[in-house]
């Protein structure tokens, strides 16, 4: 294809996106579009899979049968999200094994928030309420993103995430309205998860490298700072409702902006965790790589069995 022809295709492609048409796997697309989508979708899939670990950590210790069942179902949903996001990646010509390899080698990123430990039961509430809350704010706009398989996956993911978020808030509410010891657990969890949740919405606009192109492709519809403001404005009244205090002395309602002003985020901590030096980065990777390596003989056996079965069928067919 000549350079001019490619240029033409690109113009048509951008026009389709501008008209809000969906791009489907078999459609022509610029290489950069394909790569950017693999990067973002796989990062999202990895986050779901690694995100199973901090919550899975409390399954055996959930305080009641009802909570245990809900937590199991939630972590199972996350595995399901991972599964269809990996499948969406596969429509762009990359295999799940390749993506795992990128995760395990440290080449691919996942949401940094999962590198924090879940040390008390209240963390199950805080993670659902704040982490899933921030995730929804990030993800709802993606239900209208330009790449069809991603947009459709996100519709389902968002529905389930908002259920999880309500469930997390309900855990926090129960604690906050419970015995003094329970309220302490809730406040302590909020103290530890608040700032990492704000960081989860990404670096400030000035430092965000992918934003402009992503906006054009509808992979991103609002800037990180706008999303963060939206999250804060939405969450502060919820904390007030259940009598918990946001751990930010500078937090103040700004009448003029009709929004909350808030304190300085510790970006050094953010970059430390992103670069692999958070409290749980090594443990999370060890758990993922460990599960993968220990499972190799099982996957090999399943493959060998399927081949034998196929061979037997073929033999019978002759």
């Amino acid at each position: 294809m000549s350079e001019e022809q490619i240029k033409n295709l690109e113009v048509q492609f951008e026009a389709r996106i501008a008209r809000d048409e969906k791009i489907e796997p078999k459609d022509w697309m610029p290489e950069k579009y394909r790569k950017t989508h693999i990067r973002q979708m796989s990062q999202h899939a990895h986050s779901e899979i690694v995100g199973m670990l901090p919550e899975g950590n409390w399954i055996t210790r959930a305080p009641s049968l009802r909570r245990k069942v809900a937590l199991l179902a939630k972590v199972q949903d996350e595995a399901g999200h991972g599964l269809y996001l990996y499948s969406a990646c596969e429509t762009l010509g990359v295999s799940r094994d390749e993506l795992y390899e990128q995760l395990h080698s440290g080449k691919a990123k996942y949401s940094s928030i999962f590198n924090y430990p879940t040390i008390t039961w209240a963390d199950m509430g805080a993670v659902g309420w704040l982490v899933d809350g921030a995730a929804i704010i990030n993800q709802v706009p993606l239900c209208n993103t330009s790449y069809g398989p991603y947009a459709r996956a996100m519709v389902r993911v968002c529905k389930e995430e908002s259920f999880h978020q309500r469930q997390g808030f309900e855990i926090m509410m129960k604690l906050a309205n419970g015995a003094p010891e329970q309220k302490e657990l809730a406040q302590d969890a909020l103290n530890r998860w608040w700032w990492p949740s704000l960081m989860m919405l990404g670096p400030t606009d000035a430092e965000s490298i992918h934003t402009e192109q992503s906006m054009k492709w509808k992979l991103k519809r609002k800037s990180n700072d706008d999303l963060r403001q939206q999250f804060i404005d939405q969450t502060v009244p919820q904390a007030e409702l259940i009598g918990l205090t946001i751990p930010d002395p500078d937090l103040k309602w700004n009448e003029e902006r009709q929004s909350y002003d808030f304190g300085e985020i510790n970006w050094d901590e953010f970059w430390q965790v992103v670069k692999g030096h958070g409290p749980m980065n090594k443990e999370r990777m060890k758990a993922r790589v460990g599960a993968w390596e220990e499972g190799e003989w099982v996957r090999d056996a399943a493959m060998a069995y399927a081949e034998k079965k196929q061979a037997r069928k073929q033999k019978q067919a002759i």
């Binding site: 199973m52 899975g56 399954i59 049968l65 245990k68 199972q76 758990a287 099982v298």
Partner: peptide, 28 residues
């Protein structure tokens, strides 16, 4: 429930968690 997130593949992970979920539902 101890195995959730640590299965040999995503599919077996989902299935084992699902069985655990069924069993706890029965227990209730």
């Amino acid at each position: 429930g101890e195995l959730t997130g640590h299965g040999p593949s995503l599919e077996t992970d989902i299935a084992c968690t699902n069985i655990s979920l069924d069993l706890f539902g029965q227990v209730r």
